[in-house]
Simulated assay, not measured.
Amino acid sequence: MDKTQARADLLLERRSMTGPERVEAAEAIALHLLATPVVARAKRVACYLSMPSEPGTGPAVAGFAARGIEVIVPISLPDHTLDWVGLDPDAPLTTTSLGIPEPSGPRLGTGALAGCDVVIVPALAVDHSGHRLGRGAGYYDRALAEVTAPICAVVFAHELLPEVPHEPHDVSVQMAATPSGIFRVP
């Protein structure tokens, strides 16, 4: 299966999930992330703000803030790169034309991930080797190219697959957080 077909199939399956299933999944993912030692010890975490169709990151972000963990979130730039902003839970969010919630605030620069203890990224699927299937624009592959901190993708349990289509430039992850638990790449 090629990436285009895999994305279409995975997005179709996501659209079939109910609101209560999504809420339950987001809460379970948060509990698993917050119990993971690398996250529990973190001082700064990069984490995306989820779109409605994605596994929810709201409970995890709230948990990070409650523990005093600094959270930085991505801001998409016109050149298909990501900048980063410190998340103020009280700051208003705007939704981009791509449907991505973004806060306002001082930009930290594209190199902000260097100061993170863990980087939490979206994915449509992750395979048992850590290959991550994204939406195809390459924002995260570019942003993660120089990251040395552990990278954790967030997926629904059925999106952890034996294999996903990938290319040499695709950046792999070391973990996948699902409602069923944390999968660590061997």
Rank of each mutant, 00 (worst) to 15 (best):
G109S: 10
I151D: 08
D9N: 12
D83N: 14
A66D: 15
K3S: 12
G105V: 03
E167N: 08
S180Y: 06
I72S: 00
G105I: 05
S172G: 13
S50K: 02
V147Y: 05
I151W: 04
H80M: 12
H128Y: 06
T36G: 12
F183D: 10
P89S: 14
R135A: 05
G136D: 09
G19M: 09
D2T: 09
D83L: 06
A30S: 11
M175L: 13
D141L: 01
P37W: 04
F183C: 14
D88W: 12
M1H: 10
R107D: 13
P150E: 01
T110Y: 03
D9G: 07
P74T: 07
P59G: 12
R41M: 07
G86F: 02
T95P: 06
S50G: 06
H158S: 04
V121A: 00
V61L: 09
G134K: 01
Y139E: 02
A42R: 03
P59K: 11
R41G: 06
L31E: 15
V38N: 11
W84I: 05
A149I: 00
L160V: 02
A143E: 03
H131D: 15
P103R: 15
Y139H: 09
G136F: 00
A28H: 11
S180L: 13
A143I: 02
D90W: 05
G109R: 05
I72C: 00
L133Q: 14
A40L: 10
T57E: 08
A46Y: 01
S104N: 07
Q174Y: 10
L77C: 14
A35P: 07
R15K: 13
G109E: 10
A125I: 00
D141H: 03
L98I: 01
R142M: 06
L108M: 10
P78H: 13
E24L: 15
V147W: 06
V45L: 07
H128F: 05
E102N: 01
T95N: 07
D2Y: 04
I72A: 00
L133A: 14
A62R: 15
G130A: 08
P101K: 02
S180C: 12
S76P: 09
A66V: 13
A60P: 12
G134Q: 04
P52S: 15
G111D: 15
T95F: 09
S76I: 03
L87R: 11
P89H: 09
A145H: 13
A42Q: 06
V73K: 06
V121S: 01
P78A: 10
R184L: 08
L10M: 09
L161A: 04
D170A: 10
A8D: 10
R184G: 11
H32G: 02
C47M: 03
D90M: 11
A153I: 02
S180M: 11
V45I: 11
P59S: 12
A26Y: 04
L133E: 14
I182L: 14
G111H: 13
A125C: 03
D83K: 08
D90Q: 15
T57F: 08
L77I: 03
V185S: 05
P59W: 08
R142A: 01
D83A: 13
Q174L: 11
H131K: 09
A65D: 15
R7A: 02
G19A: 13
A137E: 05
H169C: 06
P179E: 15
R15M: 12
H32C: 08
